[in-house]
Design a binder for these strands. Structure first.
Length: 240
DNA sequence: TGCCAGGCCCTCTTTAGGGCCTT
């Protein structure tokens, strides 16, 4: 089997109505598509500080879920059923799928989705929403989760030393603070978190690209978080 | 009233418990 390799990295983050225990629905999705070239040739300013690549495609969409936000989810995302309804946002429907698919079509294949804790949260939830609409990602799509990838890299580096570092937090915001000695911007907006994710990735890009073959999974291996059974009022699906 | 994740990893471990990480 050929080693997995991808040409475009799709950094993504979801804001949703809660954690997996409440069977959440997506309320905001943001994707930054960055070509391998820009990750291998990072841009820096005069002071040598890493910069977000100038050439990137972005897609950010808000959508009103049918399920209620948990109070905590509403608090940290700033999203609510009320403000999404006030802004007349439809739910995660076929127009979202279409926009997503057209966005991905612009990117050189194969593509790899990248998310922090993606294997346990973003990817399964996205699969649940797509599956409800009978949709899927493009063939050959790969996935990378920066959480286990970065833990694995650090573990490898400190293989023979005592592990006082092992207690350090690998939350996205703490990684950003650690790498850039600065507070993450716009935490818990989908776009803000994708920015933070890209910068964290860039800081370790060489290593992450090197371990890609062992850390990446096929999208086909991602199981849905849960099987969605409800039908949307706006859905064109048949009744049975 | 209960319902209310789960795979991974660490350690005071393996006859287990608990925290992390995502909203």
């Amino acid at each position: 089997m050929a080693e997995p390799r991808c040409e475009t990295f799709i950094f993504l983050d979801l804001e949703a109505t809660g954690l997996p225990n409440v069977h959440p629905e997506i309320a905001e999705i943001s994707l930054f598509a960055i070509h391998r070239f820009s990750l291998e040739n990072p841009e820096k300013d005069e002071s040598g500080t890493l910069q977000l690549p100038r050439v990137l495609d972005k897609l950010t969409l808000c959508m009103c879920p049918e399920r209620d936000f948990t109070p905590k989810a509403s608090e940290i995302t700033g999203l609510s059923n009320q403000n999404l309804t006030n802004n007349c946002k439809p739910g995660f429907d076929r127009t979202v799928v279409k926009a997503l698919q057209e966005f991905l079509k612009r990117q050189e294949a194969p593509i790899c989705l990248v998310a922090h804790n993606g294997f346990d949260y973003d990817f399964p939830l996205l699969r649940t929403e797509l599956q409800r609409l009978g949709a899927d990602m493009p063939d050959g799509t790969l996935c990378l989760d920066t959480l286990p990838a970065l833990k694995g890299l650090d573990k490898g580096h400190h293989h023979s030393t005592r592990a006082s570092h092992s207690k350090k937090s690998y939350s996205l915001s703490n990684l950003y603070r650690q790498y850039f000695n600065d507070e993450p911007k716009a935490a818990h907006s989908a776009e803000g978190d994708v920015y933070t994710l890209v910068m964290v990735f860039l800081h370790r890009a060489q290593e992450l690209l090197q371990c890609f073959a062992t850390e990446a999974q096929s999208w086909d291996e991602i199981q849905p978080m849960y099987i969605s059974t409800h039908r949307r009022r706006s859905s064109q699906g048949h009744n049975d």
